[in-house]
C-alpha cells in the first residue's frame, strides 16, 4: 500500500491500495515513512518498506 499521510504523534499512517481502498496502518516498525512510500501491510501493521 502507499502512504498518503502520516500522523506522527500517534504512529499511524493513512495508506491506500493501488486501487484507492484506504486504511489506517500502524507504522512503528518501518518509521520514518513519508507520503508516497510503499509498505507491505499485514493485519493493520506495515511490516516492511518497499521503497518509493
Amino acid at each position: 500500500m502507499q502512504v498518503e499521510s502520516v500522523d506522527e504523534a500517534r504512529g499511524l499512517a493513512l495508506c491506500a491500495a493501488e486501487d484507492g481502498a484506504r486504511s489506517t496502518v500502524e507504522i512503528a516498525l518501518v518509521e520514518p515513512v513519508v507520503p508516497g512510500d510503499r509498505v507491505l501491510v499485514h493485519a493493520g501493521v506495515a511490516l516492511t518498506g518497499l521503497g518509493a
Binding site: 491500495a17 493501488e18 486501487d19 484507492g20 481502498a21 486504511s23
Partner: peptide, 10 residues
Amino acid sequence: DPAVAGASEI
C-alpha cells in the same frame, strides 16, 4: 471494478 478487486484482495 478495480475498487472492488482491491478491497476484496485486502
